Amino acid sequence: MRMHWDAFITAVQERGEYPSQQEAERASRVVLALLGAHLVGEVRAELAARLPETLAFVLLNPLQAHEPLTPERFVRATAAWIEGATEKTATWDVGAVLSVVTDVAGEDLTNRVLLQLPPGYDLLFGHPRPS
């Protein structure tokens, strides 16, 4: 079931402790655009179907990644796209957005998303794997 826009942005705003919905929205757009570049096929389509329509479009029309980014480079790329962000604030942004994505996706889909990503993303999703 598709999550409603207000519910998604409010959840990101609460997790990220953002003073405004605009900041939560900006973080959501950037993180999902970068994430979309790493996902393919059914997994990307299934995740998009659960996101609010506007964010599903962002996920399905991503910023192009020439190679899969390590979690560290994903955070750096997020910082580069958000005005005034540092790696520390971008880590916070990524965690706020991806933890809500995990809630929306559920465990099975989150696990399939993580299978398409380089090692270490489980921590960004707030979904640490046993080693």
Rank of each mutant, 00 (worst) to 15 (best):
A49H: 11
P119N: 06
T89R: 04
G106L: 14
H127L: 15
E14F: 05
L123I: 15
R44T: 08
E72F: 14
E83Y: 10
Q22W: 08
E23F: 11
A90G: 02
E14G: 03
N61Q: 08
L34G: 00
M3R: 15
L115I: 06
M3H: 14
L109C: 10
M1K: 10
P62F: 04
T78W: 00
Y121V: 09
I9W: 00
G84I: 06
D122R: 07
R73C: 03
V12E: 00
T10S: 10
R50S: 12
F74L: 00
S20G: 03
N61R: 07
I82C: 00
Q64I: 10
L55C: 11
L63W: 04
P71C: 07
R112D: 11
A27I: 04
E87Q: 03
E72G: 05
V94W: 03
R26P: 01
L123T: 15
L109H: 07
R73L: 14
R29Q: 08
Q64P: 05
V40W: 07
L115A: 14
P52A: 10
M1C: 12
H127K: 14
Q21F: 09
E107H: 08
P68V: 13
F57I: 13
D93W: 02
D122P: 08
T102C: 11
L123C: 09
L39K: 04
L34H: 00
H38I: 07
P130K: 02
L117S: 11
E42G: 00
L115G: 08
D103T: 14
V58W: 04
D93V: 06
A48N: 07
L51S: 13
L59I: 15
N111P: 04
A80E: 04
S99V: 08
D108A: 15
L35D: 03
A56W: 12
E83Q: 14
V30I: 12
Q64R: 11
H127Q: 13
G84F: 06
E107N: 08
S131Q: 06
P62N: 03
Q21P: 05
E23R: 12
P130S: 03
L114R: 10
L123Q: 15
T91P: 02
E107T: 13
Q64F: 08
L32P: 02
F57K: 12
L60E: 15
S131D: 06
D6N: 06
G126Y: 11
I82Q: 01
A45P: 04
H38R: 03
H127F: 15
